[in-house]
Write a protein that binds this DNA or RNA. Sequence first.
RNA 1: GAUUCGUUAGCUCAGCUGGUAGAGCAUUACACUUUUAAUGUACAGGUCCUGGGUUCGAGCCCCAGACGGAUCACCA
Length: 576
Amino acid sequence: MQLSEPELRRRQEREELLHLGIEPYPAAQFTVNATAADILKNYERRKTDYKNISLAGRIMSRRIMGNASFIEIQDATGRIQAYFRRDDLCPDDDKTLYNTVFKKLLDIGDIIGIQGFVFTTQTGEISIHVQKFTLLTKSLKPLPIVKEAEDEQGNKITYDAFADREARYRQRYVDLIVNPDVRETFKKRSQLVQAMRNFMQEKGYLEVETPILQPLYGGAAARPFKTHHNTLDMTLYLRIANELYLKRLIVGGFEGVYEFAKDFRNEGMSRFHNPEFTQMELYVAYKDYIWMMECVEEMVERVALALHGTTEVQVGEHIINFQRPWKRYTMFEAIQEYTGIDISAMDEGGLRAVCAQLNIDVPDTLGKGKLIDEIFGEMVEGKLIQPTFITDYPVEMSPLAKKHRGKEGLVERFEAICNGKEICNAYSELNDPIDQRARFEEQIDLGKRGDPEAMMLDEDFLRALEYGMPPTAGLGIGIDRLSMIMTNSPSIQDVLFFPQMKPEPIVVAPSDSDYEAMGIPKAWWPVFNKMNHKSVEDIKAIAASKLFNDLGGLRKKLKVDAPMPTLDEVKTWLGQ
RNA sequence: GAUUCGUUAGCUCAGCUGGUAGAGCAUUACACUUUUAAUGUACAGGUCCUGGGUUCGAGCCCCAGACGGAUCACCA
């Protein structure tokens, strides 16, 4: 890797600090007794408490004005201005600490500790008057410079925002340093998980952990990631869901279990899909899906209140209100509401005619259940902005859900739809082992017909059901999707710290020792570095005459103080 | 996987009909003891994503590729 000029300069500064006896990465702990947010919030009311403060953070901007300077320092809670004055820091004749260390050897991005007292500047900004500072970490890579200001109305204006998505996702650490909104989004995500966990702890449910490496994958319809265990010499799959394990725990006698689970699905990626994602699954014994709807409403309403202090949340152009109770439709009612067509009594032929009438393209292979799902997906789902429960799904699509207590061909299942997307999925869980086996066998048939997502038959799970699982309500709720809504993020990548991406190409640049091995005189090494070849092989592939010409050109540009080699010498270097 | 847009200085971006590569910020130097996008002056900084092609001449046109975004498809 060729280092840019700022990078070289910072490495040089690191050396100079060492020469001055200043350790750029000290071991001694720097004790902090204040945060930026605390000072800005409480200083005016409790001035005497801020006479002797100690704070650490990253330098985010510098305004040097001769013998006085202002910097902005950023800690985990925010930014605060600090005031450095030469004669305070260097009361004696030796002004090195200010003139050299502070002004020349520190940069934006360096992490320092400061000690001093809080005051208000003439322009009214609460600031720290620094009496002593300590370098804690020298930063060798320049940060993207983002400048912020406020207009007359007090609106925040950002200049030169660090907005390139690829760079932001690949180097999330930089994104987090430079974009405060990103930090806020992830804090909200954490609060969301915390609010849900508190909710379930209060109800007395048990938080559990179940296997991620599974010999059989199940609990959802999806393609898995496959791996291999060497000692056991067996195939294992990364879980696509943890449903079947949590139900085993209900069989075992726990009456409420939940897990925040990373699941893995080997499928397409989009702004709603990442190969690994988080679901919270909850199973409660002696409950049904109607009870579970109330539970979801209460939990999600609680989350909205915890994050926003209100049930109303701005999402894109909509304001979504999570206040209970939410609207409820059966799937048939919802389709009738949005298309005007009652499909509840239709057979497959009738449903196909409806698809044709609504201009929905469907493959001939689809059965009745999938046709209904297609109509719902095309005509209804995207229009449901406010949180809405859709209940009573066709049995063909739900091999783990209990048959409806009153309606033939349906199961006791609901999804909550919000902002046009599913956020959760729940059933009265199927606990009849004979029925469950039959449903698995239907799935196996589907698999034989080529459906890559058909479920596998899990004999151990069936054995557990045969011992008897009490009537149970189960829920899976997508934490990423819910986070997107609660933080007004248009893409799943905005709520994942490290979204999946293709790896960056790794370039192994030739080094000085490579040049030496090729017999190139040292004076020419900078020239080869400047040419930035990707590898030694790349250099050797260049025609000697072309390289000879290039060397001549760069010799002039870089002012190389060495005689021009002959064409024959160049050929020797290249082994040609 | 398909379509489409993008990739130019450390960062954010301009770049005309194909004719010597531009700005602001950051950096460097100097000035400046309460500034706040600090200011003023000066300097420096570029494989224009990669590889081919067309052309006297390519950042720009053509072909292929890499990476990324968006939409669609797939997908609880």
